[in-house]
């Protein structure tokens, strides 16, 4: 049959469903093992964060599309959590192989890492369903729930979100070409605009870098 925009959207959703229907709502044994290997076990914080962001997401979603659609938001978030666990496990396996270490205590106790990873997973789900979520919400121009909406919902810095995108794409081999393009567009939006907002942690890093440079004798002035 000929490919139509509707058929393409349905295929993408179906593809995501196939992956996530068999995925877990909770950490797998493999993930639990990574958590247990940590100097400080991160599992309680991870579960609390998911619970807290579930409430925040549900509230913001309902505000955007109407209280009648709140259950759609609950389902989207649930799929996002499944993808988050799935990608986290793949990332840790990849990092274990690359670094030859088993203790990821620092990474797994880093709140920005988890929030960014969960935001990226939820963004993939939201972008997969695209505008279908707005059908019961009325005005579409006021209810665009794709990126960067998730940054506002999770109170997340764009610069931190940026850090997980490439690794996410690298380890999640089932992402469609359209989804990779979407994440690439998110990257470009961050690089060109969002990372340069005045409260961006990017400026702290620039300052740190400049301070380090200042400590080392520089024979030549830094060029513009």
């Amino acid at each position: 049959p000929p490919q139509t925009p509707v058929r393409a959207a349905m295929n993408t959703i179906q593809q995501l469903m196939v992956i996530l229907n068999s995925a877990n709502d909770s950490p797998s044994n493999s993930l639990i093992s990574y958590f247990n290997n940590c100097t400080v076990n991160p599992v309680e914080n991870i579960l609390q964060r998911i619970e807290h962001l579930s409430y925040v997401f549900r509230t913001r979603f309902a505000e955007a599309v109407g209280q009648a659609c709140v259950e759609i938001g609950v389902q989207r978030y649930k799929l996002g959590v499944r993808l988050y666990y799935r990608v986290m496990e793949s990332m840790l396996k990849s990092e274990e192989k690359r670094l030859s270490v088993h203790n990821f205590s620092k990474l797994l106790n880093n709140s920005a890492f988890h929030t960014s990873l969960l935001a990226c997973a939820v963004e993939v789900v939201m972008a997969t369903y695209g505008r279908s979520a707005f059908e019961c919400g009325g005005s579409s121009s006021e209810t665009d729930l794709t990126f960067p909406w998730i940054l506002y919902v999770f109170d997340l810095k764009a610069f931190d979100f940026y850090k997980v995108i490439e690794s996410f794409i690298k380890v999640e081999s089932s992402l469609s070409k359209a989804m990779i393009k979407h994440l690439e567009r998110c990257e470009h939006q961050i690089m060109e605009c969002l990372a340069w907002k005045s409260d961006s942690p990017f400026f702290d890093l620039l300052k740190q870098s400049k301070d380090r440079e200042g400590q080392i004798e520089q024979p030549e002035p830094t060029s513009t």
């Binding site: 990092e95 990474l107 490439e166 690794s167 070409k177």
Partner: peptide, 21 residues
């Protein structure tokens, strides 16, 4: 994959990006 330009070097990953190396 799929035309995406990977920018991270072989010795870089999320651990380094989140300052956890």
């Amino acid at each position: 994959s799929q035309g995406y330009h990977f920018g991270l070097e072989e010795d870089e990953g999320v651990s380094e990006l989140f300052d956890c190396d």
